[in-house]
């Protein structure tokens, strides 16, 4: 059965989200071998990445199609600014309110998730069929 071009080019947002969540849980479990605090900090570091990124993806894909492209670009710029601001606020909140915190676990998990998220989007991008 022939599918529409729109469907073929659709990004696997839900699959990305599931893989990223699984990766965060796995990393938190690996850090938990160093202690409960390290595992908890790793989980928080992963969530600091995941929550703003999910919101960014939702904002970017709120509108689609050539007619709405200028609105989509506006959403992209706004969502990126808010994503960076949200990340900064979450980090500030964690460093101020969470005591004690395992900083290497937090920052390492966050950095790994940022790189993994970018790589995941690149390697699992939809392949257009011609």
């Amino acid at each position: 059965m022939a599918k529409s071009g729109h469907r073929l080019n659709r990004v696997p947002l839900l699959r990305w989200l599931v893989i990223e969540t699984t990766a965060i849980v796995v990393m938190a479990l690996l850090w938990a071998t160093q202690g409960v605090l390290a595992g908890y900090s790793a989980l928080v570091g992963g969530l600091i990445f995941l929550v703003p990124n999910t919101w960014f993806a939702y904002q970017v894909y709120k509108v689609e199609g050539a007619r709405n492209m200028s609105r989509m670009v506006g959403n992209l710029f706004r969502a990126e600014s808010i994503k960076i601001a949200l990340t900064a606020v979450f980090f500030a909140a964690v460093f101020n309110l969470m005591e004690p915190i395992h900083v290497p676990a937090l920052l390492f998990t966050f950095a790994v998730m940022v790189v993994m998220g970018a790589a995941l989007r690149w390697f699992m991008r939809p392949k257009p069929q011609r």
Binding site: G5, H6, N9, R10, V11, I48, F49, F56, A57, V60, Y61, E64, G65, M69, M72, L76, E80, K83, I84, T87, A88, F91, L107, F110, A111, V114, V115, G117, A118, R121, W122, R125, P126, P128
Partner: peptide
Amino acid sequence: NQLQTKTFIMAGLLDAVPMIGVG
């Protein structure tokens, strides 16, 4: 739609370094 997808992927690659910098 294809261009929007490519833009979204590139946005993910583009903001990796500033995000780590913020942390």
